[in-house]
């Protein structure tokens, strides 16, 4: 946690501090002593990119990190932080960059508009959408299953040892953007959210479901490399209309399609120099991300996976490098 002290606090000691109290200052203040997450050994050029727990994100982060390190000579730290925690990191100094942000209008309002500790740094070029999916074979066998209105009819198919007498809706990491509980309640579905705990659990279950023809209804998102491996069919929820998800308790509509974007800390935007330029310029397609993500998922070291893509696509990334 990066903290700045009231100027001269330590020099003047408690006497001064006793009058003013100690503020955990969040305003940019160059050269202030840091008590940061990983007190940087070479503080000048360290960029902290939060790692959110899904592989697509990791792919983007590692490509940017690789370029920061090898093209611009920065050091990069990549703390493993959940989405909302990473946003808090802007305030505490733990995080400079969130490389793939999924909406989070509430957080934008809070940290960008109110607290003014973060700023937007443009689109990643990726379009993101969250939804409920079933494997292809189910859509073939039960054609009407792809409409939410018919889900209750098939609830029995989805029962597991974890869901008891209701159908299971498999969810991922607890930190993911989620309206599942509200949707089940408001659409009166006879389902229960079962948490796999991670993206990996979702992927594994989806693969098994397709291969072994097991029933599965699960939370998933695009862009994802998995779509290039197995066919998944999205279940239609009541269509999204702007504002239909305003009250998290009353959500009864599908997720919107999001323009995924980058968020950086105010301080990084102000003092990040070329690193900030690079982050701002970074933009690629869903296919690009899926290539890297697939490699990472197959066990390639993320750095290696990033390197592979970078070596194969010099034209794309050279456009990002600040002049």
């Amino acid at each position: 946690m990066r903290m700045r002290l009231l100027a001269g606090f330590l020099v003047l000691g408690m006497s001064v501090a006793g009058c003013g109290g100690a503020k955990v200052d969040t305003a940019p203040q160059t050269g202030a002593p840091t008590a940061g997450s990983a007190p940087a050994s070479s503080a000048a050029g360290t960029v902290k990119i939060a790692i959110n727990p899904w592989v697509g994100y990791e792919a983007s982060a590692n490509v940017v990190a690789y370029l920061l390190k090898n093209e611009l000579g920065y050091q990069v730290e990549m703390p493993e932080l959940k989405e909302q925690v990473a946003w808090e990191g802007f305030e505490t100094g733990t995080v400079d960059v969130i490389i793939e942000n999924w909406g989070h209008e509430d957080l934008k309002k809070k940290f960008i508009e109110e607290k003014k500790v973060a700023v937007e740094a443009g689109s990643t070029g990726n379009k993101g959408v969250i939804g409920w999916y079933v494997p292809k074979w189910m859509a073939d066998k039960y054609p009407d299953i792809t409409d939410w209105k018919n889900l209750n009819k098939y609830a029995d198919l989805f029962k597991t040892s974890e869901s008891g007498d209701k159908g299971a809706l498999l969810f991922g990491d607890p930190s993911y953007v989620s309206n599942e509980e509200a949707l089940i309640k408001n659409l009166k579905l006879n389902f229960k959210v079962v948490t796999g705990g991670s993206e990996a659990a979702l992927i594994k279950s989806a693969q098994q479901a397709q291969e072994q023809k097991k029933p599965l209804l699960f939370y998933f998102w695009d862009p994802h490399w998995l779509f290039s491996k197995i066919e998944l069919v999205r279940v239609k929820l009541p269509p999204y209309t702007p504002g239909c998800d305003a009250d998290p308790k009353k959500v009864a509509c599908d997720y919107p399609e999001l323009d995924l974007d980058k968020i950086v800390s105010k301080k990084f935007a102000d003092t990040g120099g070329k690193a900030y330029e690079l982050v701002k310029n970074f933009s690629w397609t869903n296919e690009d991300q899926n290539q890297v993500a697939l490699d990472i998922n197959n066990g390639t070291d993320p750095q290696e996976a990033a390197k592979k893509w970078i070596e194969a696509n010099p034209a794309k990334w050279q456009a990002w490098i600040p002049k």
Binding site: L5, G18, G21, V24, A35, G36
Partner: peptide, 16 residues
């Protein structure tokens, strides 16, 4: 102002 933030500061200094 007078308590928690001091702890943060001192613990932070110690950590650094």
């Amino acid at each position: 102002l007078y308590f928690v933030n001091y702890i943060r500061i001192y613990v932070g200094e110690l950590y650094t």
